[in-house]
Write a protein that binds this DNA or RNA. Structure first.
Lengths: 357, 357
DNA sequence: GTGTGTCATGTAATCGGTTACACGGAATTA
DNA sequence: TAATTCCGTGTAACCGATTACATGACACAC
């Protein structure tokens, strides 16, 4: 028993394939009678159009590809969740491919997706990867989210620089002076902007800087945190390049017998879900991650639909918002309970499942 | 400038389309000369085969669909990561579709994937959804991971019952007697097995049971935790149906001024990454989540390839392993630093990015 | 020189949809 | 009644791959 084709449906409904197609795609005129006959046949045969055949004649796949970097964790899974919500709302599918650290792997992933997707969202936070992507994509609409404010190509970036400045200014305002920075890896555009923001804010306040490089992973944050804790000139605050490193550093500081925020204040970046679950709750820069993912997807679909229209090459900027929790300000304690997290709108559809009993 | 087709390549290389196809698919004999000519033309034209056309003639898509439930969080993102690793290794793509809570949504998702994937992994933890899935899938190979030990259909399940028994026995062994259980939502098969395991182990030890239903979310765990903390007959241990609820409960207990594990011991289930990041580190039942995802994908691909062969209807069982951390045993303190987590093999490819500096 | 076998290559049918165009019947108008 | 629209329907070409089968070149043996 092979799967039914449009011809089987046509035979059974006693109409032509064209009519079946018209009913199913909603294009073109059909009488209510044929409509019914077709739908009956469709149900009876459990017919589902062959997407390959359809994509062959329409040259659309209704699928968006997402190229993710090597780094995983909550940031990216939240982002994908948001994209998935947007995709389903628009009738698109999502093909994901993660763990592409270097340009070569990313290029292989893009190649293997060409012809299979209508558009691409590339999250590799390296400049070369981005360049590679645009050149490889050919005529494929592509949306960059690699952290580089890249005019000339449609992209969405977080205001990493501005966020870092906010973080540092907050620490200064709460009386910290020896503020160290755990940066993300060299070559990562997000990491570099955050570092630049830190340096600028510190320079403006005339404070000495300390920078140690991490890898955006919790393990690297732990390592660097332990190292900083052991220094004779121990910092009284640490601004980590992202939340995962901040959490790692927090554990290292606590393991070293230091107390957060009394001995060392701590600020992260991203506001991943666990930021409020660690103790003390982590001060961080909130990016509405799922929302950002969703709007990225919607924008890319707009690009796909508008192929040929006046090129959208805008670089959309997402401004992170400082969320103060006890890791930098003990007074924030009371506010950090597990219910306080404002949900992204992208997660609203899920709330219904959340009232226990 | 339209995308190049196989005919453009054939013309340019001055060979027939058949030869081009033979070179590209690696099937059939070709001389080294034609091979070179074809490859040159392919490079020059930036040719990429149209996957729709290919799938039309081969009736394979090299794509696996994954249907996820409404619940998100680290458990599912880890699972997907593992699947992605496996998929890429086998030359497959992954289409994900999340947030399908009820049977209707899941059914829509499956329908929209038919004809677009070679096989399906269904994670909806409801019995009806599973039944629906198998009936909807038609001839599509399908792998269930819904928590029901379902002979007759290929599936992978966690030994939830056995895991729950281990958890309870561990708590009893460390001197706890008033052990409460925060269960997952009714109708969720995983939740029900874990509950059954709890009840059985408690009955065996002749201890009274307390069960409050949660929703597998951190928020619901918090709510139930607060409620339990306020009871006059406060439990001295809580076994939560999963880690997210355990974390929520932990925060609620701490907010109520209770100390974990001194006042109340806590055990979760799953061993999601944050389980060791909360303080105190959470005792839990480890499932090598990413590994499980990877092997699920590999098994499904085997099913796809072996279409027609003696049906594989085995129900593979994953046995969780008890990981004792300070939330149930203060003596475990020393062992819980951020470096102690044995990585799944599925995450090995990522390790290279993890040495800071 | 003819026959036979091998093997790279080309031709054309095929997969399952969409859609331009042709067609025919009913309704409207002269 | 005949001419003109209008509109639902069918026929067939097309999308871009794969692949069964036919072809023809060449080598080798007789």
């Amino acid at each position: 028993m092979k799967a039914a084709t449009i011809r089987d449906v046509a035979d059974r409904a006693d109409v032509s394939v064209a009519s079946v197609s018209r009913v199913l795609t909603g294009a073109g005129p059909v009488t209510e009678t044929t409509r019914k006959k077709v739908m009956e046949a469709v149900d009876a045969l459990q017919y589902v159009p062959h997407s390959g055949a359809r994509s062959l004649s329409t040259s659309k796949t209704q699928t968006i590809g997402v190229i993710l970097p090597d780094l995983y964790g909550e940031y990216f899974s939240e982002l994908i969740r948001g994209m998935d919500v947007g995709a389903r709302a628009l009738g698109y599918h999502l093909i994901v491919s993660s763990s592409h650290d270097d340009a070569e792997e990313a290029s292989a992933a893009i190649r293997s997706m060409r012809g299979r997707v209508d558009g691409l969202i590339v999250l590799s936070p390296h400049l070369d990867a981005a360049n590679l992507a645009t050149s490889l994509a050919g005529r494929l609409p592509i949306l960059l989210m690699n952290g580089g404010a890249d005019a000339g190509r449609p992209s969405i970036v977080v205001d990493n620089h501005g966020g870092a400045v906010q973080a540092v200014e907050h620490l200064i305002a709460t009386g910290r002076r020896r503020i160290a920075h755990i940066s993300g890896p060299t070559g990562n555009l997000e990491a570099e902007s955050r570092l630049a923001g830190y340096l600028e804010a510190m320079a403006r306040a005339n404070l000495p800087t300390t920078v140690v490089e991490g890898a955006f992973t919790q393990a690297s944050g732990h390592q660097v945190g332990a190292e900083l804790a052991a220094r004779s000139e121990r910092p009284d605050a640490i601004f980590a390049g992202n939340d995962m490193m901040a959490v790692g550093a927090m554990l290292a500081l606590q393991d070293a017998g230091l107390s957060v925020p009394e001995d060392v204040a701590l600020v992260g970046f991203d506001d991943v879900p666990i930021a409020e679950l660690v103790r003390p709750g982590l001060t961080t820069l909130r990016i509405r991650i799922a929302d950002t993912g969703r709007s990225a997807l919607e924008r890319l679909v707009r690009l796909v639909d508008a192929a040929g229209a006046p090129a959208d090459t805008a670089c959309e900027v997402v401004r992170p918002e400082l969320v103060v929790r006890p890791s930098s300000d003990p007074a924030a304690q009371a506010r950090t309970t597990s219910g306080d997290r404002p949900r992204d709108s992208a997660s609203l559809p899920h709330l219904k499942g959340e009232n226990p009993q």
